[in-house]
Simulated scan of single mutants.
Amino acid sequence: MAGDPADRWEELKVGLMMLTRLPVGRIAGEAPSVAASAWSWPLAGLAVGAISAATYWLATFLGLPGPLAAVLGVLALVLATGGLHEDGLADLADGFGGGRDRERMLEIMRDSRIGSYGALAIGFSLLIRVLAIGTLACWDAIFGFLAIAAASRAVMPAALHLMPPARGDGLGNGASGVSQEAALAAALLGGACLLPFGLLDAALVAATMAGAALWLGRRAMARIGGQTGDVCGAMQQVAEAVGWLALVVVQGATG
């Protein structure tokens, strides 16, 4: 994105603060808005993906089998983010599964307690990712940790640009107003991180991830009338899980 590099750096720091537990230091002067930082969210994904990839590589270097290395890689990702997006997925699943109308769904989603729908959603999300990663060759999994962590976080700026907030407060409302430029920059960054798999495979994986996020976004529009922080987190999780499945398919088809 064009502009002062110092401003872009501060926006990246806000993005890392929002999406990770990584120490980034203090913001110099007035902090940029969450919406202004949205372009950088795939880079935040790249950072946590690098931690996961390094953990996975170390596990395989020490002789652990692929599935166990995959568990440790995903665990590193969850620790680096504090389970932020998993929490959103659980809240959304509980709200959509247990609420009969918009108000009740939003009420359940705001409740910090996890219900059966949320527990199942997190369980299947983790299971899909671990099993998919465990089937891949080592270097495909390493590049996958980097690429899919980045690309799955590119769907959230698009949601915040295209979807209205479902409530008048909360993270979704505070982060609304993401510009078209920021959403496009995030999409380009996320897509570029998939290119090591080749142009065709990258396009297929990206399209699958975008389609999954679009499906969930349409469900959210129909059921609660817009986006919330939980909706964005759930979209990231769905895109990530589907991205790993798509990578397994395309690598199997071309391997």
Rank of each mutant, 00 (worst) to 15 (best):
I27D: 11
A206E: 11
L19R: 13
A90G: 10
A50Q: 00
L120M: 14
M17C: 13
V130C: 06
V250L: 09
A185E: 11
T81V: 07
L12V: 11
R21D: 14
S152A: 09
A121D: 03
Y56E: 00
V14E: 11
S33Y: 13
F197V: 08
D140V: 10
A212N: 10
A132G: 04
R218Y: 13
S112Y: 04
A159Y: 10
L75V: 15
A212Y: 11
L75F: 12
V71P: 04
A147G: 12
F197R: 06
M221R: 10
R153M: 08
A185T: 14
E10K: 04
G73Q: 05
G255T: 01
A186L: 07
Y56V: 05
A80Y: 03
F145D: 04
H85Q: 02
G3N: 07
G15D: 03
A28I: 12
V14W: 07
C193A: 15
A210N: 00
G177D: 05
P23Y: 15
G174P: 00
T20K: 05
A93D: 10
A241L: 05
D101K: 05
G3Q: 06
R21C: 04
G233P: 10
Q236S: 02
Q251N: 14
V34H: 02
G243Y: 05
P196W: 06
D91L: 01
R167C: 09
P67V: 15
S40L: 00
G45F: 01
L58C: 15
G191I: 08
R26W: 13
L16N: 04
G217P: 15
L216W: 11
A80D: 02
G190E: 03
H161Y: 14
M109K: 15
I27Q: 02
Y117F: 14
L194I: 14
A6M: 10
V74K: 06
M105P: 05
I128C: 08
S52C: 12
G63D: 04
E86C: 04
F96K: 03
R167A: 11
V248D: 10
G98R: 01
V34W: 07
W215C: 00
V249M: 01
V178S: 07
W215M: 03
R104Q: 13
Q237L: 06
S179T: 13
